[in-house]
């Protein structure tokens, strides 16, 4: 998987407009820091453990990329048809960084599988560097209060994500 494809897939999987929509009221900074830290930490852990994880479940790297692409199709289609998450119900204060900012807003199952697939394919450092911009965009988006127009924006990213997902699947299919 090329670096460009990985970066674009991560942006689609993390869909920053979902984070914008779920941005909690009040002092957002602590929650955003928590969400960003938890998400990037999870990405790093998944990338580090990707090899043993895939070995354990008997899945090769190319097949993991196919899985990542299919998961990205699923979450992208969700973003197209369903409204992005709202701040409530959620945890209060900095814990809002966990719910709703990390889940369900930013850290999607597609991002998790993408981290595993990319970790096996490109290594921990490249995976982290490639996914970090998506999480940074989500963090920036979550620093502002939700505004109008986030649903169509999230849907557009979802449509873009479905197209990117096709390339991720093809990358897995045409790999040795």
């Amino acid at each position: 998987m090329t670096l460009t494809l990985l970066v674009l897939a991560a942006i689609a999987a993390a869909n920053p407009f979902r984070a914008a929509s779920a941005s909690p009221a009040g002092d957002r900074a602590p929650a955003v820091v928590v969400a960003s830290s938890v998400s990037i930490g999870a990405v790093i852990v998944l990338a580090i453990t990707s090899g043993p994880v895939l070995d354990t479940i008997d899945v090769t790297g190319p097949s993991a990329r196919i899985a990542a692409g299919i998961a990205l199709v699923a979450v992208s289609l969700r973003d197209v048809v369903a409204p992005p998450p709202k701040p409530e119900p959620g945890l209060a204060g900095w814990k809002a960084g966990l719910v709703p900012l990390t889940v369900p807003a930013t850290f999607s199952p597609a991002l998790a599988i993408l981290a595993v697939a990319a970790g096996a394919d490109r290594g921990v450092a490249v995976t982290t560097i490639a996914i970090a911009p998506a999480l940074a965009l989500a963090a920036l988006a979550a620093m502002r209060p939700p505004t109008r127009g986030l649903r169509p924006a999230a849907a557009i990213v979802g449509g873009f994500g479905a197209a990117i997902a096709a390339f991720v699947v093809l990358d897995g299919i045409y790999s040795i």
Binding site: T60, I66, I70, A74, V99, P104, P109, I113
Partner: peptide, 25 residues
């Protein structure tokens, strides 16, 4: 309810990918 709904969503996505990608023996 929201947490359960999130868990259901994750389960559905993993189930879908599990159908598409099987373990390789």
């Amino acid at each position: 309810r929201r947490l359960l709904f999130i868990a259901l969503g994750w389960t559905l996505v993993f189930g879908l990918t599990g159908i598409a990608v099987h373990p390789e023996r």
